[in-house]
């Protein structure tokens, strides 16, 4: 009798793969728009033409640039003027501490942001100065000299006070770039910072109230509460998140989420942090996976040998 098993196996595998292809890769391809990465080049923004001077930049940031009027810069000894929920009540969202802005954000992006926030952030559909819709971050109009030089100086200053790129941890990247809008409860992160362990329930509740106040402001500012990103690495994929951050309008036309202008390196770290929150056991999975596969292959080999032995007498 001819052995039909190979052909039967081929038929089963064929129909299984066709079904898999249709309901997974193909259906996803049809249902989800594919957005190519722009490799965080920000090519739509003007190229940098000037080399900045950090010392002059410091004077501008602290003085004429007015940045510290709204932003804290802890690294330069400038603490926040108000608590986050108070700042959010004035600006809609807490202007982030700029200590590490120089390493988190792309230089070309920063250069454009300082002059024209709504443009760099790609929220001009919401903030049109001609219609009197002012972005809460006021653009820099120049301090009397060459404005491009002045902006370059401020960028150079921000870069000079920031930590080295290697020192940016995944959590730091997330907290700086996304944390003022997106909570991450599985990492204990709220929009106003990491929630401390309180001894007294009263203090814990007081903290929660500040968070709620903050969220109310941001809801009014953005039209909706930006989602808690704890599980987003699983509900969206890496490619989606990174192309969304690169340019939110590509995925969600008209959305209130701004382009954050992070560098490719920051993005990798943000993703890493999201994995720490939503795919915490991925390293363990790799490790256990290898062991289990080896074990199961050995099991299958023994099963095969047993079958051979039992069936020897049957033919």
């Amino acid at each position: 009798m001819k052995n039909k098993e190979p052909i039967i196996l081929a038929v089963v595998v064929f129909f299984t793969l066709v079904t898999y292809y249709l309901v997974e890769p193909y259906a996803h391809h049809v249902m989800h728009k594919h957005v190519e990465s722009e490799s965080f080049a920000y090519a739509d923004l003007p190229a940098i033409t000037k080399t900045g001077d950090a010392a002059r930049g410091q004077d501008l940031v602290m003085g004429a640039g007015a940045c510290v009027g709204c932003h804290a810069i802890e690294a330069a000894g400038m603490p926040a003027a108000m608590e986050p929920q108070m700042a959010a009540a004035s600006y809609g969202v807490n202007p982030p501490d700029l200590s590490n802005a120089g390493v988190i954000y792309d230089a070309r992006f920063l250069t454009d942001l300082i002059k024209n926030p709504a443009h760099a952030l790609k929220v001009e559909h919401k903030f049109d100065a001609d219609k009197g819709q002012m972005h809460p971050m006021v653009g820099f109009y120049g301090a009397g000299g060459d404005i491009d030089q002045e902006v370059a100086d401020m960028v150079a200053y921000l870069q000079s006070i920031a930590v080295k790129p290697e020192a940016v941890t995944p959590a730091l990247a997330y907290e700086n770039a996304c944390g003022r809008c997106h909570a991450m409860s599985y990492e204990n992160w709220t929009q106003i910072g990491t929630k401390p362990k309180f001894k007294h329930e009263k203090d814990s509740l007081a903290f929660d109230i500040k968070v709620l106040e903050y969220q109310d402001s941001i809801k009014t500012y953005m039209g909706k509460l930006p989602p808690d990103l704890s599980m987003y690495i699983r509900s969206r994929n890496e490619q989606f998140i990174s192309t969304l951050v690169e340019n939110p309008q590509n995925h969600l036309a008209g959305t209130a989420m701004p382009r954050t202008g992070v560098t490719a390196d920051t993005m990798d770290k943000v993703i890493e942090h999201m994995k720490d929150a939503g795919d915490t056991k991925r390293h363990k999975r790799e490790e256990v996976g290898k062991t289990v596969m080896i074990f199961i292959v050995i099991f299958a080999l023994f099963a095969l040998l047993w079958k051979k032995q039992v069936w020897r007498d049957l033919h």
Partner: peptide, 17 residues
Amino acid sequence: MMVVGIFLIFFFYLVFY
């Protein structure tokens, strides 16, 4: 058992990867 063995290789490949 032989078939189960081969099936489990496929199954655990899916579980982990």
